[in-house]
């Protein structure tokens, strides 16, 4: 039977297509953060995956070595585990890992049983081990019946062993903000307030999304557009007046020199789950009021953010917010 290998080439290509967005998302999540360390790590990892596929192809097609599915099974499983547990950084919580590994286990089982041949490949050695009567089969049978219960016993022991982990705290990271806050004796209604420095070249309010034309431009030149001048002043607040970078980092990635002292660690603005999911006014509330104004479900004591209204004027807060969005390339969430 003629086997058409060219056909299967399309699929690695699609796999690569799938891998590129993964790399882009992981590399600091959008907004042109293509230079972060995570990006390189993922490029390397993608390369590793393609390399592994190529290696498999070499072994199978060029060298003619056939690896039984029964051997492939634990190998693939271990690969998945390593990828999800070790390579994927920072580590994911156990609940997620368990779910992912469950899906992977089922998927590998399906892979081993996809065609009649591959299923034979997978199940034949097991059948031999269970049924045949020669010495080799017997030995593997005894070994299996020792190892499998042994593994189960070890697992049980681990389960029963008392552990002293911290209890799970479902801290609300972005609690519902108040409708209005009082900053410097002025009432700011969060639902309707607008950033006064979000203004375009024409001096009008700049619609969210339209600021993208300023992304990547140099804000520090003298003849910069009005918007970029605000960005620059926000940057001065971030790196100078307020010194946000001590905690939130030079790249706004939450990895400033002080960050490791805090639990939870400072917010990573480069993460698409933080400021890009929030309205500008929410960020204003967080900056102005800091940790102490968090609601109880968000554990006010579990945030080291100072109430910056005591150190900055309102305009500086709005400007630093402009700067943060500009720097990360995210858009604030809008109300509708």
């Amino acid at each position: 039977m003629k086997i058409n290998h060219r056909f299967s080439i399309i699929f690695p290509i699609i796999a690569v297509i799938l891998a590129i967005p993964m790399a882009v998302w992981a590399g600091g999540g959008g907004g042109g953060q293509f230079y972060s360390a995570g990006y390189y790590a993922l490029v390397i990892e993608t390369g590793l995956v393609i390399g592994a596929i190529f290696l498999g192809w070499l072994i199978k097609e060029k060298m003619g070595i056939h690896i039984p599915k029964l051997i492939q099974f634990p190998f693939l499983w271990a690969m998945c585990y390593v990828a999800l547990r070790v390579i994927l950084q920072p580590p994911i919580p156990f609940s997620l890992l368990a779910m992912y590994m469950g899906v992977c286990t089922i998927a590998i089982l399906l892979y081993c049983s996809l065609t009649v041949d591959s299923w034979k490949d997978f199940s034949h050695p097991i059948a031999v081990m269970l049924r045949e009567d020669h010495a080799k089969a017997k030995l593997s049978r005894y070994a299996t019946f020792l190892i499998v219960p042994g593994l189960i016993a070890a697992q049980t022991y681990n389960q029963m062993l008392p552990s002293f982990g911290e209890p799970i705290e479902l801290r609300t990271v972005h609690p519902a903000p108040p409708a209005s806050i009082n900053v410097h004796k002025k009432l700011v209604t969060l639902q309707t307030a607008e950033n006064p420095f979000r203004i375009g070249d024409d001096g009008e309010y700049l619609k969210v999304g339209d600021e993208s034309k300023y992304f990547g431009q140099n804000a520090w030149v003298d003849d910069a557009p009005k918007f970029l001048q605000q960005v620059k002043e926000g940057g001065i607040v971030f790196f100078g007046t307020a010194g946000c970078f001590f905690c939130h980092g030079d790249n706004l990635d939450g990895k400033g020199p002080f960050s490791f002292a805090f639990n939870p660690i400072p917010a990573n603005f480069a993460d698409p789950g933080t400021i890009s999911q929030l309205q500008e006014t929410f960020v204003f509330w967080r900056v102005a009021k800091g940790g102490p104004d968090l609601s109880r479900e968000a554990f006010p004591w579990a945030s080291a953010m100072p109430p910056w209204e005591k150190h900055l004027v309102t305009n500086e807060i709005w400007k630093v917010i402009i700067f943060e969005y500009w720097h990360t390339g995210f858009f604030p969430r809008t109300w509708e």
Binding site: P175, A176, P178, A179, S180, N182, K185, K186, L187, S295
Partner: peptide
């Protein structure tokens, strides 16, 4: 924290205009 609707505080807020 909730104040999506007008506040119904028993005590006035003295520091507001």
């Amino acid at each position: 924290k909730a104040d999506r609707c007008p506040n119904l505080l028993a005590l006035p807020k003295p520091d507001v205009d």
